[in-house]
């Protein structure tokens, strides 16, 4: 039997909003330690990896490893019935389940809703993501990053990200013209979610499709800050921490200059 009880149902709502537009169906691997999800968009340009450790749950029981093939649109419809402060319980048999139950309990305990969602058979490629030493890490406000991606999308469909010791520059150009947004490494880090820290081993200069970045920033409500990790000729990593019990990590292949 797999059973996981989440005190704050709102977190699961946010996680679904973060993944459902990038990956329609996903394999939720549940083992004794965590629930992990890895999925790619159909063109294999972008990938999302979600990890939620057992300690995020008020109650977590996983007798045998089980993989739940979830249709994220169906799951999202159920979670739209949940309030942020509802308790959400996920339940599934651990011998090749063909369905998963979700129980929503209202905070005052007066309302209980239960749903059964059919699981889907998914045969997607799972990618092995090597641990990588990145040339640059940029930690910044997640709201700021979302704003930059949205604003630059008006000027072009790609953003060039260049990191130097002191700052990170986001540029985009198209028939409207050219736009550059430069963030400077914050000298003092008084409020973490408003400061920008650039940790540079060597300069990077890479170009990425804004369409995917604007899908990644749907995870903005999950964390006040976002960390970008970049290396020349390597996929970009955009990471949102889920408190200290997990993360949502997006990977995006760069555009290759001819």
């Amino acid at each position: 039997m797999f059973e996981a009880k989440l005190q704050q149902g709102g977190l699961l709502k946010k996680i679904l909003e973060s993944v459902k537009d990038l990956v329609v169906d996903g394999l939720w691997d549940c083992d004794g330690a965590a629930i992990t999800l890895q999925g790619m968009d159909s063109s294999h340009v972008a990938l999302v990896e979600m990890l939620l450790r057992a300690e995020a749950f008020e109650h977590y029981r996983c007798d045998r490893n089980v993989t739940l093939g979830m249709n994220h649109n169906h799951l999202s419809k159920i979670l739209k019935c949940a309030n942020n402060d509802d308790i959400v319980i996920l339940k599934a048999a651990d011998q090749n389940p063909d369905s998963c139950s979700l129980i929503l309990e209202s905070k005052n305990g007066e309302k209980t809703s239960d749903f059964v969602v059919s699981l889907v058979r998914i045969d997607t490629d799972q990618l092995g993501i090597p641990e990588t030493e990145y040339s640059a890490h940029v930690k910044m406000s997640s709201g700021e990053f979302q704003r930059i991606c949205r604003d630059l999308s008006q000027f072009g469909d790609a953003v060039q990200i260049t990191c130097s010791k002191q700052d990170v520059k986001f540029s985009s150009s198209g028939e409207t013209g050219k736009a550059n947004i430069t963030l400077t490494h914050s000298a003092t880090v008084d409020k973490e979610e408003e400061s920008v820290t650039v940790d540079l081993k060597e300069p990077v200069d890479l170009t990425f499709a804004l369409r995917f970045l604007n899908l990644f920033t749907k995870a903005t409500p999950i964390s006040d800050t976002v960390t970008l990790s970049l290396s020349q000729e390597a996929p970009l990593v955009v990471e949102y921490k889920i408190g200290d019990s997990g993360h949502i990590r997006y990977f995006l292949a760069p555009k290759i200059q001819e």
Binding site: G128, P235, A253, K255
Partner: peptide, 14 residues
């Protein structure tokens, strides 16, 4: 012009 890379050329399918 730039062509869009794919993750398969960076990560291995397991």
């Amino acid at each position: 012009g730039a062509t869009q890379g794919r993750l398969d050329s960076f990560f291995t399918v397991v």
